[in-house]
Amino acid sequence: MRTPSLTRRGLLGRSAATAGGLAVVPLVARAAPEIPATTAPPNPVRTPEMVDVVLQVNGKRLPLAIEPRVSLLDALREQAGLTGTKKGCDRGSCGACTVHVDGRRVNACLTLAIRCQNKAVTTIEGLAAGDTLHPMQAAFVAHDAFQCGYCTPGQIMSAVALIEEGHAHSDGDIREWMAGNICRCGAYNHIVDAVRDVAGQTDTGRG
């Protein structure tokens, strides 16, 4: 969606009176510049150790030219434009980068992209069915299971896996099996509410 912008005409040319005793500010706003293609894209310098790989991400082929040291996380964020998967610590300590590889939740920051050839990678961008949110995504919205939203994709990917693993038997279980996902805004209570809600809906994993 294009971001609406303020116009000089609207605000200076036609600005009106005062309201409620408050002065109308002289608004100096300029049209929002779109990001222009100012510079030619620098293709990374090709070195002998660079390799061509093809990943399968969210059901689509993703061909990449990468060095072997590139993590799955950086491949997604820096090359594939899939920035929904977040980098919080880059050391496996926070869970913000959680994705599914062959159906299992893993830390993308500690996964080499080159090792993911012939494996199915699912990220937060692949969870919804078109415009229909995955039930876990919908539950996170309904329970306000986040504030800043940065840990949220990782929490959701972990929560979806947790239910499939059958680890949503109790609130205590949910907490323990979500322990790898840190939320610094402190939405834990609401995240547990969301996971419990979805576990109840799907009627699996709770005994």
Partner: peptide, 27 residues
């Protein structure tokens, strides 16, 4: 009320500073 930006945040669509890409960007 549910957050109006909730959908962006649960789908990975909310863009944080490091996620603005542009031609020629280097690190």
């Amino acid at each position: 009320i549910n957050r109006v930006d909730g959908r962006l945040k649960v789908t990975g669509g909310a863009k944080y500073a490091a996620e603005f890409d542009m031609p020629g960007l280097v690190h």
